[in-house]
Design a protein around this nucleic acid. Sequence first.
DNA 1: ACTTGGTTCTTCATCGATGTAGAAGACGGC
DNA 2: GCCGTCTTCTACATCGATGAAGAACCAAGT
Lengths: 348, 348
Amino acid sequence: MTFGVRYGERVPATMYDVAKLAGVSIKTVSNVINGYPYIRESTRERVLAAIKELDYRVNVSARNLRSGRTGMIALAVPELRLPYFAELADSVIRAAEDAGLTVLIQQTNGDRARELSVLSGLHRHRTDGVIFSPLALGEEDRAAFDADFPLVLLGERIFNSGFDHVTMRNVEGARAATEYLMGLGRKRIAVIGAHPGELVGTARLRVEGYTQALVEAGHRADPALVAEAGLWHRSTGAQAMHQLLDSGAEIDAVFALNDALALGALHALHERRIAVPDQIAVIGFDDIEEARYSVPTLSSVSPGREQIARTAVQLLRARIAATADGEPAPPAEVFADFELRLRESTEG
Amino acid sequence: MTFGVRYGERVPATMYDVAKLAGVSIKTVSNVINGYPYIRESTRERVLAAIKELDYRVNVSARNLRSGRTGMIALAVPELRLPYFAELADSVIRAAEDAGLTVLIQQTNGDRARELSVLSGLHRHRTDGVIFSPLALGEEDRAAFDADFPLVLLGERIFNSGFDHVTMRNVEGARAATEYLMGLGRKRIAVIGAHPGELVGTARLRVEGYTQALVEAGHRADPALVAEAGLWHRSTGAQAMHQLLDSGAEIDAVFALNDALALGALHALHERRIAVPDQIAVIGFDDIEEARYSVPTLSSVSPGREQIARTAVQLLRARIAATADGEPAPPAEVFADFELRLRESTEG
DNA sequence: ACTTGGTTCTTCATCGATGTAGAAGACGGC
DNA sequence: GCCGTCTTCTACATCGATGAAGAACCAAGT
């Protein structure tokens, strides 16, 4: 007597089994599966029937070994627990699926060593290409950007790396957000999430947009209003907000460099019973779903996440195809459209 | 003259190249890589040096084709944009990584057809096993649960399926939440997220815990206080809350069947300027990170997500090993420990 | 000296698919 | 009636690794 689970009783059918059942050669089965045109309709039907009958699935490993294609792409992001990246991953998975690709997610934790391992082709054999959203890598890692596999970079234009690159309009979006706050009559606009000393990257670009807006309006950026936050989590946003408030600086608005920071800031303001937006208006960046349901609802710059995901997958596919055809296009640089989503946290 | 990106100039080294460089047979290289013990130390070092020199990586496809192992497991969840599943995926990926496994995420969208395709072994050849958190499948799909690959079920004990199963203490957690609300003196406790007519599944179990608590306290469950919500999103939670309020029912507390619903409810209450917890206390389920930063912060039942993820990976590994050894254990059934996390939304 | 057993390494077949090359038949043109 | 072209299908080598089996060597026991 047996009990418990038992596997492997059913041995998966191979192409050979299908061929035998359909009375054709194994290569013909392969041809049917791969859409080779010169096949008699009746033959194709017999093969398809046999495939169905045996519940046959292509062995991806075997195919890959022979053809070099895996049908998988990797998506390397910092952490899925950050809502923006969870939503991005969701979008990328859907876009990839529409193209018949499977996505393998790699979490880098924003860790430099782990990000470098992405570039070193950790999954070279597993995937046909990589969509990579680096966080920690900077100018000093330029040399590492010599990946010999199809690679599409997301997020920041770290530098002109020679790879396809899809990004958001960080500077413009940040400027628009800041301008909007100024349009509300706010004069003392703080920033949360700066990375002082950073030469490249999202933080720098968004702070640049903020500064541009201030300068163009004839104001000056006040260093006392710039709060640092290395990681862009809710917790660090709350901390930074508390520090700003503790510093005694006069503040009537906050531009948080992403929504997680903004939500942390909202939380801190709530703890101190400071009214939003009456006393301090808050705006974020990313427009994650949570922003539509926070209390108060959070205004944010919507960076075109869907567009970014779709474009990245499309570019990667083109790049993968070009690798085979040997007709490489010059690296593309795509900027997604942004939009200001105004909600309660900036009302009035 | 060429411009743009070009790949494939560097051809990845194979085991054969390593063998040649190290002056040994290809099989010895394989043995070194796989930790075969009977190898002279000096030989091992030469091989390792050659591997480093050539930047050699095992071709996973070839290995898989020969050995049947892929080193990958699939995680099938409804949607990553739901914070609970994003956090779960994060935890599973980390746990798998510690075991040297790579995770392939499959989104089912809670769609019955897609969930069935998980069971039909869509990725049979790609992965060594599957961790599956079904949402739509019910008693009528029992027949489909005959997967011939290692499978660990998460979430609800849909039925005694013969597979390893890791779940949370839904009934007990829900009861504890409800009891806590009653302990605050609340008498009119509404529920959000019920699935009327559902025979199995999370909704039913959590409602059962709620009902048990009421009954044991000598109250009766009032159908007017039970609000339906098919999908457990913020939006549906807000809708359901509005409906409850519109219905004119007297309410002094809400037990939302998950945090997304609870956050939607908080949002709706905020829109109507109903004070939480003064007028209505709110408690959720899942303890997602967002709950710690909402306004007000949300009390919730923490279901032991980390423990669930680690246990699931561990069970799956054991099951995969057993498939090879042919020594199947009886299916395990693990209940994670829950904890009540009390925050502002139930204070006082 | 000869067996025994452990260590170290190699040879060979094989996993399941696809690319290459070419065979066989049908058809039309001259 | 022969040739070229198009269509349809097949045989065979091959991708890069691993399992099975065994060869060669050494030390120890009798």
